[in-house]
Simulated assay, not measured.
Amino acid sequence: MSTPAQYYESLPPVSKFYGVACLMTTSALYLGLYDPWNIALSYEDVFKRFQQVWRLIINFFLLGPFSPSFAIHLIMIARYGVLLEKGPFDKRTADYVWMLIFGALSLLVMGAIPFLWTPFMAGSLVFMIVYVWSREFPNAQISIYGIVTLKGFYLPWAFLALDLIFGSRLMPDIIGMIAGHLYYFLTVLHPLAGGKYVFKTPLWVHKLVAYWGKGIQVNSPVQRDPSAGVAFQGRSFRLNGNRTRTSTPSEQERQAQANSSAASQPSSGDGVAFRGKSYRLSS
């Protein structure tokens, strides 16, 4: 049995950050530190009053007041977000961050349509995470409240049915599923069907992850910021895309031996020196 502190430390960085940010936002609301409508998504305030651009970001961190619905969404992050980050996105921290950013951008575009608009889209983003997990683990066995057992592929639909039973709005869940399917189509289904994979994680996302030094990114196109507190693991690349490679002492010794062997070989009879590497026939 692990303690709460040990469990917290075991969480991957992105899911940990998002879950804690949502918890702190709701806690501040409970303490009455702000009016929720000051952070609600309002395109009129964003585009007519450019000083309120924060509405495009902060609305993704409010899961609502403390309630059973808030607890369920937080459990979704702690369960399915963590499974995604430790599973298909293992050693791909920047790719996971880009998935969330793409989901948020997709939801903002859909929110511009009046009948799809919702003031707080954190629930939709969480539902996108659940949908992507269901496509990555379609055959996983899931038990809902210990009553119904179903495959992971049907999990989003089960949550949708529960929201219908409890009288919650269905539109945030639906647009979250649409954003999740769009991401899965562009990254998995379309390439598998023979299409060209063009949905690459932008360089600035890799730089952001490298700057903060959080998580792991294999084949990262940038080097870790040396001022970051946590080592950015993975292979090292120069900013111009060329892979940097440092020779180990053993490699240098072998190279020196090879050059010495090549220099000691006599030149061929035609007077032209053989300038390639020399090997014995027995090797």
Score class of each variant (00 low, 15 high):
81 G>A: 10
81 G>M: 14
81 G>S: 12
82 V>R: 15
82 V>P: 06
84 L>K: 13
84 L>E: 13
84 L>W: 12
85 E>P: 14
85 E>G: 15
86 K>N: 15
86 K>Q: 15
86 K>L: 15
86 K>R: 15
86 K>D: 15
87 G>N: 07
87 G>D: 07
87 G>Q: 05
88 P>H: 11
88 P>A: 12
88 P>S: 12
88 P>E: 09
89 F>R: 09
89 F>Q: 09
91 K>C: 07
92 R>F: 02
92 R>T: 04
92 R>D: 05
92 R>G: 01
93 T>Q: 11
93 T>M: 06
94 A>N: 08
95 D>V: 06
95 D>R: 07
95 D>A: 12
96 Y>D: 07
96 Y>E: 03
96 Y>H: 13
96 Y>R: 05
97 V>S: 05
97 V>T: 02
97 V>H: 07
97 V>D: 02
98 W>F: 14
100 L>F: 01
101 I>A: 10
101 I>P: 04
102 F>W: 10
102 F>Q: 14
102 F>I: 01
103 G>S: 02
103 G>M: 05
104 A>Y: 00
104 A>N: 06
104 A>Q: 11
105 L>V: 15
106 S>P: 00
106 S>V: 02
106 S>C: 08
108 L>N: 13
109 V>A: 14
110 M>V: 01
110 M>W: 01
110 M>H: 01
110 M>G: 02
111 G>D: 12
111 G>V: 03
112 A>L: 10
112 A>K: 01
113 I>S: 07
113 I>K: 03
113 I>E: 04
114 P>L: 10
114 P>S: 09
114 P>C: 04
114 P>R: 10
115 F>A: 06
115 F>D: 03
115 F>V: 08
117 W>Y: 13
117 W>G: 02
117 W>D: 09
118 T>C: 00
119 P>C: 02
120 F>H: 09
120 F>W: 10
122 A>I: 00
122 A>N: 00
123 G>F: 01
123 G>P: 02
124 S>R: 03
124 S>Y: 00
125 L>Q: 02
125 L>M: 05
126 V>A: 07
126 V>D: 08
126 V>T: 12
126 V>R: 03
127 F>S: 06
128 M>E: 09
129 I>Y: 08
129 I>V: 15
130 V>E: 12
130 V>F: 07
130 V>K: 07
130 V>C: 13
131 Y>V: 05
131 Y>A: 09
131 Y>N: 14
132 V>P: 01
133 W>C: 05
133 W>S: 05
134 S>F: 12
134 S>A: 15
134 S>P: 13
134 S>H: 11
135 R>V: 08
135 R>M: 15
135 R>W: 11
135 R>S: 13
135 R>G: 07
136 E>V: 09
137 F>S: 12
138 P>V: 06
139 N>P: 01
139 N>G: 04
139 N>M: 09
